[in-house]
Write a protein that binds this DNA or RNA. Structure first.
Length: 319
DNA sequence: AATCGTCCCAACCGCTTATGC
DNA sequence: TGCATAAGCGGTTGGGACGAT
């Protein structure tokens, strides 16, 4: 197909020569790129405008980061892909210096294979083998076997409503990223490497935990409830073998991001410490709770879990 | 050394969305 | 409002690099 912008020109295709690169860079640094369609003519290039634009954005732009992806970048891609799917341009926005094309290629050549080798469906991020999904005999650890982080689910965060109410219905309804609607104004999801418990705080509904264990086969001895509020449940420890992997957010250095995360984690710990907890026996305090652990399981299985609130907010608002 | 197969990535294709008139 | 054009985007392809045989 010949692009409309260059249908009347004799255009060259294929790999760019160093001379062509130089012409393009020289022209753009001098004149900018207001109109890609007319740029080749003025720059003395026998390329179509579209080809020039792609060459510039994917390869010649001075702010591009060259070289292989870091493990941190890889984790960011996986995390965002879990939420957004193949929206490479959106994903690339969270990786300064990387292009959508680069992210896409990296995904197709490396990450995809890695996930498959780990037994994960690269599209859904769920386990490939169907029998693993029988929740009746899973415990939290099994459900969460592919997650390396400790998480706190809490609604004690300002603007939590905004965060989740802004998620589009498509996300809420997509099986691969199941995020129960009941949660959208109730919870925020934060990582917490300091906690050795998964903490679920529900704001509005009194707890009715009677169905929790039966529905999700969670060991009741691993469930604790705070003694001064009816709306907190602690769930058993999840894997914390690996270091928490950071993510970036625009406008802040990695150090600042980590600092912010630590603050949030500390805040979460304080809230929990202040609330205290009481031990629960099998079927004891659970009886009066209506908290739906099936929903929790959905969240965990969907692994719709972000690495910090700013990051989540940013994602949510950027849809 | 030659051939083959695989991997990776730059570039292309074609559809969608944005913009200007 | 409707049309034409430009730009954005995701999927796909082609070919060079490289390792295995």
């Amino acid at each position: 197909m010949v692009h409309r912008c260059c249908s009347k020109q004799k255009i060259k295709r294929g790999l760019w020569s160093p001379e062509e690169d130089e012409k393009l860079v020289t022209y753009i640094t001098t004149h900018g790129h207001k109109s890609w369609s007319s740029l080749p003519k003025f720059a003395g290039l026998q390329r179509c405008g579209k080809s020039c634009r792609l060459r510039w954005t994917n390869y010649l732009r001075p702010d591009l980061k060259r070289g292989s992806f870091t493990s941190e970048e890889e984790q960011i891609i996986i995390d965002i892909h879990r939420i957004l799917g193949n929206r490479w341009a959106q994903i690339a926005k969270h990786l300064p210096g990387r292009t959508d094309n680069e992210v896409k290629n990296f995904w197709n050549s490396c990450i995809k294979k890695k996930l498959i080798s780990q037994g994960l469906d690269p599209q859904t991020h769920n386990l490939l083998s169907p029998h693993k999904r029988s929740s009746k005999h899973n415990n939290i650890s099994n459900i969460h076997q592919n997650s390396n982080s400790i998480f706190i689910l809490t609604s004690q965060i300002p603007n939590a409503d905004q965060t989740f109410s802004s998620l589009p219905n498509t996300i809420l309804q997509t099986p691969t990223t199941v995020f129960p609607k009941q949660f959208q104004t109730s919870f925020n999801v934060l990582p917490n490497k300091h906690l050795d418990q998964l903490c679920v705080v529900e704001q509005e509904q009194p707890q009715n935990i009677s169905n929790i264990c039966s529905n999700s086969c969670i060991d009741p001895s691993n469930v604790e409830m705070s003694n001064n509020t009816e709306n907190i449940i602690w769930v058993s420890r999840v894997n914390d073998d690996d270091d928490f992997r950071g993510s970036t957010c625009e406008g802040g250095t990695q150090a600042e991001v980590h600092q912010e995360k630590d603050k949030i984690c500390e805040k979460g710990n304080e809230v929990i410490d202040n609330m205290g907890s009481i031990e629960m026996n099998d079927g004891d305090c659970l009886e009066n709770s209506n908290f739906d652990f099936g929903l929790l399981e959905s969240v965990l299985n969907s692994e719709f879990i972000s690495h910090d609130l700013d990051y989540m907010d940013e994602l949510a608002w950027n849809f």
